[in-house]
């Protein structure tokens, strides 16, 4: 058994990342030939105790996707960290918190209350909520606890590399495997994608004029989008200028603006603040009233600018005003 061991794991995520391994298509065969997959919940049955039984650092690399929200996910993250030589945050959720991270706009209590009591579709007169421990017929099953905030993987355990994307593209995954297997690894902590914004590889780049002054914003569904032209002069928010490249500009290729899943470049501390700065500075209006009229069509700045990055933003999550 000299083949390196590889694990895939899945925390708070949609599962799409695990599927991407299949997106490697025939290359998957090459990978499988060279490695042993020891953990892959979406495809293989595997027990916690089996994993625990492995010696520490026995797994060469673990590709963990999903954000960390529950105590169980935390435990798995810690366990996998211990068993792995390289822990790779795989995909936007593990990298930045991802879509689940948007929950950080709300208090945990509010989330529980809404989902178990107040949502229109809920019938729960007893106001029952999931408990971490219950007693039933003499047994005491445990349920994971929901943590106060959604975290990116590196906010829970040390991470060696990041593979960005929602989900990461096969090319990047393939390159990561190649690097891992060949040992030609970049410095620890690197994001395994180019450190330059998406526009660099966007086919629409050349169509952007040098004098954009926004007078109106549209959401993608509000307008018939020109398939060739840069989205920004069309008044559609595109996160491309504030987002790492490496995806091959797939969304613009499908006539949708970039939503920022690769996260910011290394030179940026807060992706949302940066795109906000750039878009607003380029508004045409001068009067407060007119400025706000134009900006009105960005109805949800948090959801727009921090779609993937709220959990790793400078403000990280909603502050609790009730205690302030």
């Amino acid at each position: 058994m000299s083949k390196p061991k590889v694990a895939f794991y899945w925390c708070a995520s949609c599962g799409g990342c695990e599927e991407t391994v299949v997106d490697l298509a025939e290359d998957i065969l090459g990978v499988v030939e060279k490695v042993d997959i020891v953990l892959w919940p979406v495809a293989m049955d595997f027990k916690y105790r089996d994993l625990e039984a492995l010696p520490d650092r026995a797994i060469t690399a673990t590709l963990l996707n999903g954000a960390i929200r529950s105590s169980e996910q935390e435990e798995m993250a810690v366990l996998l960290r211990r068993k792995s030589q390289y822990l790779i945050a795989y995909g936007s959720c593990a990298h930045l918190g991802g879509i689940p991270g948007l929950a950080n706009q709300f208090e945990r209590e509010a989330i529980l209350r809404f989902n178990y009591e107040e949502a229109p579709s809920v019938v729960n007169e007893a106001r029952t909520r999931p408990q971490t421990v219950t007693e039933e017929e003499g047994r005491r099953p445990h349920l994971p606890e929901l943590r106060h905030v959604v975290r990116s993987l590196d906010q829970v355990v040390a991470v060696d590399y990041y593979l960005p994307g929602c989900p990461p593209t096969p090319n990047l995954t393939r390159a990561a495997f190649d690097a891992l297997l060949s040992g030609r690894l970049p410095p620890k902590g690197s994001v395994l994608a180019p450190d330059i914004a998406l526009c660099d590889e966007c086919p629409r780049k050349a169509s952007r004029p040098a004098d954009v002054a926004f007078t109106q914003f549209f959401r993608p569904h509000q307008k018939v989008l020109d398939e060739e032209k840069c989205f920004l002069p069309q008044g559609v928010v595109c996160m491309g200028p504030a987002t790492r490249s490496g995806c091959g500009a797939q969304c613009p290729g499908g006539n949708m603006p970039c939503t920022g899943c690769f996260g910011p470049t290394s030179r940026v501390r807060d992706q949302g603040a940066k795109i906000l700065s750039s878009l607003c500075a380029n508004l045409g209006a001068r009067e407060e009233k007119e400025i706000n009229r134009v900006l009105e069509n960005i109805p949800d700045p948090v959801g727009t600018f921090y779609r993937y990055g709220l959990a790793s933003s400078r403000l990280r999550r909603r502050a609790d005003l009730t205690n302030v």
Partner: peptide, 14 residues
């Protein structure tokens, strides 16, 4: 301008 400029042109009108 740093070498990693993506050429997005956002700065030009500013």
């Amino acid at each position: 301008i740093l070498p990693d400029c993506s050429g997005c042109k956002s700065c030009l009108p500013l």
